[in-house]
Design a binder for these strands. Structure first.
Lengths: 178, 178, 178, 178
DNA sequence: AATGAATGAGATTTCATTCAT
DNA sequence: TATGAATGAAATCTCATTCAT
């Protein structure tokens, strides 16, 4: 909550302790330092991916799975707090290797699952044979998150952006002879 | 430089003054505060867009223009410093309205130019009639920048990512009957 | 002590911390800021009025009470530190409403007690029926403090001024037919 | 103006230069430093006493002169700016000998003139033979200024206090058998 | 006489962390 | 496990003054 409201660096350890209704000293009994609180949060973030992993694991036709995933993930990203937290973590990841690793791992979990779907879709001839399914997955995630950030910043609701986003992704992925 | 190396919040005003070979007090004769140094940088960033605007203004066939733009912009984004600075500014933009406005304005300059190209491409039947050219332009930029961030974080050179990125964008944009 | 020696504005928070044998950071664990240290002092000042309030509460004949009060209060004011601190607080009171309120409240405590004595003296026909006993009390306090300030500034001991001060007050207060 | 609005210590030399529409450097061509600006003001203050000195020099019956003086001086003190500036200077006088001397001199000019009036009044049997006319004069000034400060702080207009003030002074000064 | 950039010491305040209890 | 006082380095910013022009 604190990191969301004021950002990682502007948040004081005191703020965190107060918000958690824990004494300052006791916070340090549970976390070696401020940094580790962010690490903990980055690890908690990972669990939030579970529903999306479940969707991507479904054995329905891949276009349906993809559609469901996009819908669910964009709904998740429609909550500014999720976008801001991700940005906050991205930002720290630049200079803190352990955060970077966590971030990459979290992301890999999602893209790996999406990659599997894309590959299956290609096999099923539901998707175009993209040159590199893994890269394609990464790009799909990035398009979604990029739009989410834009939505926060320009205060345009995510759903207003989703039409074009979906069109962009699907056109790129579906076979040419619709 | 300081913001790049250590990040906005980890950089002290002293660091900036030292780096600029200016006394601390004198820095404050030129900038009301640390925040305004970032603002200044965000405004300088804008000028760096000029070459890309020039490319986008070219009257060559739109696929060629688009290709040239993607090449140039991705080369620019291949320099980690440009990615990091953009991330640093994005991050501040979340909580500082004036930075947000500058960021949005800078971005608009680029997407407006790109939108014009996309529209012209559609008119020329070189591009598919995407539902919303402006949105499409935004997404193209976001795909490029998202990949650049990924390149920095996973230490994969940008050029290794560009194949898929280009494929993704072009497939989405070019008419279905190649 | 610091405020006495160097004045409120010339005193640094560091000076206070050093003098109090407390680390600078810890001072801020106990006081939100420098201002609040002054507030605390203004509140402590109030307690110093207790002996005078006790005198004023005595049920002896009012001229005796008044005389005792003047003696006691002027003795208190003979210590330059008390005068200087009052001046320091007065000075801040001009622009800081909470200090002003404290100052007025402190003063009211004293003048209220003195007013009661004056009123009783009038009832007992020991004092002249002054038009407004409360105002008279205020003036008496002001005469005493004004003289004390003059004593500090011109380095004339307070006791040398007290003859005229007493004469001035008593002549104004005692009934015309001595 | 600056000293009035923000106080001597809170005012920066830059503020003064800006207000005076003079460049910072040029201010230092005219005054050796900030301190000397205050000195200059204290000296200007002296000239403001001229009208009161003129009144006190009048050869009319002393009770009339006294009355006229009290009226004029209390009117002057009814302007908070005059009170605040005096307090600001008093405050500095505590620790800066040259300001103290100026303040005492300014004050002496006024009290000397008032003392002369009191003495003449005693000779004329218009006033009671106070034990020390000079001290009495000082006290009269202090009563007036003390009331003025109270008027500023408690936001009661000076004229509401003047009834009691006048009564207090006159009762103390006029002969017992009115 | 005038300018304003330059200086560096010093101002107040915040901070992550430690530690005795 | 819990507490919160204590620490001191570092943060941002202000200030009176100087000085080359």
């Amino acid at each position: 909550m604190c990191f969301l409201e004021r950002g990682y660096h502007q948040t004081g350890v005191r703020d965190i302790a107060n918000r958690a209704q824990v004494s300052l000293g006791n916070l340090y009994n549970h976390f070696p330092g401020k940094h580790d609180v962010l690490v903990e949060i980055a690890m908690l973030e990972r669990k939030e991916m579970d529903p999306f992993l479940k969707i991507l694991a479904m054995r329905s036709p891949t276009p349906k799975v993809l559609d469901k995933f996009i819908r669910a993930y964009s709904k998740y990203l429609a909550a500014p707090e999720n976008v801001i937290l991700t940005l906050e973590i991205s930002s720290e990841a630049i200079r803190q290797p352990d955060i970077a690793q966590l971030f990459v791992e979290n992301r890999a979990e999602l893209t790996d699952a999406l990659t599997a779907v894309v590959k299956r879709g290609i096999d099923d001839k539901d998707f175009r044979a993209v040159p590199d399914p893994e890269q394609a997955s990464q790009i799909i995630i990035e398009v979604l998150e990029g739009s989410a950030y834009r939505s926060v910043l320009s205060e345009v609701p995510m759903r207003k952006l989703m039409g074009s986003v979906k069109d962009f992704i699907l056109t790129s992925l579906l076979p040419r002879q619709g």
